[in-house]
Design a protein around this nucleic acid. Sequence first.
DNA 1: TTCTAATTAATAATGATTACGATTTACCTT
DNA 2: AAGGTAAATCGTAATCATTATTAATTAGAA
Lengths: 136, 136
Amino acid sequence: MNLTNAWNILKDNGYKETSKRNQILELFANDERYLTARDLLDVMQKDYPSMSYDTVYRNLATFVSLGILEETELSGERHFRMQCESDHHHHHFICMDCGKIKEIPVCPMDMVGAALPAYEIANHKFEIYGKCPECK
Amino acid sequence: MNLTNAWNILKDNGYKETSKRNQILELFANDERYLTARDLLDVMQKDYPSMSYDTVYRNLATFVSLGILEETELSGERHFRMQCESDHHHHHFICMDCGKIKEIPVCPMDMVGAALPAYEIANHKFEIYGKCPECK
DNA sequence: TTCTAATTAATAATGATTACGATTTACCTT
DNA sequence: AAGGTAAATCGTAATCATTATTAATTAGAA
Ligand SMILES: [Mn+2]
Ligand SMILES: [Mn+2]
Ligand SMILES: [Zn+2]
Ligand SMILES: [Zn+2]
């Protein structure tokens, strides 16, 4: 997901263009790591010292609901990053040091769907945690 | 994991036998769902009205560290359940209505280990969420 | 330019989790 | 069996992430 694409989605859904929204999106577009609300606020407050948590959380929720950001829970905190460009479903390795991710092209659901007859599957989570080559 | 087994582990590690610990373990031994600290406290306070959060969280941490309980994060809250009996590594389907689980015998790591050369893999999470046949 | 709904700031409230000093208890030693 | 001690628990406060509230500001349409 890139900036232009994100703004198209926002405009299509009637959201207004604000400088803060734009800077949040730029920040995510230039950072492949997972960030917390606090991470985001800290960076944003360099340019907007009065930026509030409400603005951060509200926009994060908006972006996630529109599929612009993806979200995961790491050690008890919500983390966000730009939705992957890749159009086919996949999963992630996440470096616990630097936060960078690596795509895992396979999905285990291909092998287990049949093992759950009569079950209604809503979603699933598959993540691998460790250290990337740079951090090892 | 059963009561006797759990107590053996606790005794081996120098933990004392208390009625509250025993009741917590009994509760988990008779409930295959994932429970939160609050769930646990609510049930325990029927027999021990003065039971405190400190006792709940301290014992949960102890049990997890000794491998008596397993833990996962569901919708932003820590959930706990008795460690599985099964001795071979596996994963779970979790019913989002009743909280019951079903074992998934496969592990996706069998297929992705080779896709991450030079990466140091520490752990992984694979869970499937939905509704079990009874709740559907 | 004017109007209006969306957005934001400032701050308080909430809910889960952790921390801490005082008290009680399990269990080892005598 | 009585006493001593470290572990366990209680009662409560503190912390931290997240959500809610209200008033002020602003983007975009008319
Ligand atoms: Mn990806
Ligand atoms: Mn299991
Ligand atoms: Zn998948
Ligand atoms: Zn596995």
